[in-house]
Computed example of a mutant assay.
Amino acid sequence: MPSSVPLVDLSPWFEGTPAGRAAVAAELDRALRDSGFLLVTGHGVPGELRTRTRELARRFFALPEDVKQRYAVTVGGRGWLPPGAEANGYAEGTETPPDLKESYSSGADTGVGDPDVDGFWFQRNVWPAEIPELEAAANEYMARMRALSDELLTAFAVALSLEADHFTRHTGHPTYTFNINWYPPMTHVGTPAPDQFRIGPHTDFGTVTVLDRQAGLGGLQVYTSDGRWEDAPFDPAAFTVNIGDLMARWTGGRWRSTRHRVLPPDANAPDEDLVSLIFFYETDHDARITSLGPPIGHTAYPDVIAAEYLREKLDAITVT
């Protein structure tokens, strides 16, 4: 059965011809209506940067536990999220065992001048002294991801026949998070508990997520529109892109914020470990998200303020 997750080449968008941009925008609209997920090539992000960032992160995750503990934080913090810190299934209201992963989290760190806002959304990034090269690589990666995400949001607006800056006018000083996830092997974590995943079933919370993943037996699955869990296709040159709940609300339900999960370690590959680079893009913290009405959208969600909505979601998945 062919995958429900399509592949879109962004090259014609970046080449800038009206016909090329319109064609890419139409493909994005179809993908986000039908699947909520897609693979994108032609994005212009150097493969060397992706490889280097992943390799440096692996060096951090290989450090002794007591060294990593110096950087330990809870969900929403900047630093190391240890095993057991997060259970994404709670976002759906499902009691679930903790996710079988570790993360290193960074993000937007240039504040807006309001201590209450800056203290959570624009915290200072913390970098491990043991891996000094990680800071520069991660910062370059985040800059690339923010630029790509804004291009995607621009293409999204064109796809809906809106002004090109309809979404990006709300990303002048955005919040975003960059999580590097390490999914340890079964030889490290043991046999998973019932209904325990590397990441439990959930939807993302923001506008757009850009994922650089590795293929594996214990890898990404997406929930199809006809109610099946399906292995996500993999292309080493591509990013996996999906929208989150904020964007689904913004489009009045036209586009799908799709459930997904990362399978637990597989007994057939007990030594398999994977590292994913995940960029969660949002909006300005005080952006008011108002559903687009017909003919674009079909559901009038109540307005939300981005930061308030996202904070509730993050609190829901934090294991206390």
Rank of each mutant, 00 (worst) to 15 (best):
V117M: 05
N88T: 14
R58W: 01
D116H: 10
Y90A: 14
V112L: 13
D66V: 08
D116S: 14
G93E: 06
Y71R: 15
P64G: 03
V67L: 15
G111I: 00
G119V: 12
V112M: 08
L63M: 13
A85K: 01
S105V: 12
A72C: 10
G111F: 00
Q123L: 11
S106N: 06
A85G: 04
P97W: 00
F61V: 13
G76F: 04
P83E: 09
Q123K: 10
P98A: 00
F61R: 04
P83Q: 12
V73C: 13
E86D: 00
V112D: 07
L100R: 09
N88W: 10
R58Y: 09
G89V: 05
V73I: 14
R59I: 02
P64A: 06
F61K: 03
S103N: 10
R78A: 02
P83F: 10
P115S: 15
E86V: 08
P98T: 07
D118P: 00
T74A: 12
V117W: 02
E102N: 01
S103T: 10
Q69M: 05
G76W: 10
R58L: 14
G111A: 08
G113R: 06
D118E: 11
V75I: 10
E95Y: 08
G119N: 05
P97T: 04
K101M: 04
F60D: 01
A87W: 05
E92H: 11
D114Q: 11
W121N: 09
S106G: 08
A72W: 07
E102T: 04
S103G: 13
Y71A: 08
F122V: 04
A62V: 06
Y90R: 15
V73L: 10
Y71I: 10
E102L: 06
G79T: 01
A57C: 08
D66F: 03
D114N: 09
A91I: 14
V112G: 06
T110M: 14
V117Q: 04
W80D: 00
Y90K: 15
E92D: 14
Y104K: 05
R78G: 06
A108M: 02
P115G: 15
D114P: 11
Y71E: 04
Y104L: 08
P98W: 00
L100H: 08
P82K: 06
L63C: 11
L63W: 00
T110W: 01
G77F: 03
N88L: 15
P64D: 12
E92A: 14
S106K: 03
E86C: 01
G93N: 13
G119S: 10
E86R: 09
G79D: 00
P115H: 15
G77I: 03
D114S: 12
A72Y: 01
T96N: 13
T94A: 14
T96W: 02
D66G: 03
T74G: 13
Y71Q: 12
A62Q: 05
G79Q: 00
V73F: 10
K101L: 07
E65Q: 13
D66T: 04
K68S: 06
T74C: 02
L81K: 09
G89K: 08
L81T: 07
A57H: 00
G89R: 07
G111N: 09
R78W: 04
R59W: 06
G77S: 12
V117H: 01
A85N: 04
Q123N: 06
F122E: 02
F120P: 02
P82C: 03
T110N: 12
Y104Q: 09
T96Q: 15
A62E: 11
V112K: 07
A62Y: 02
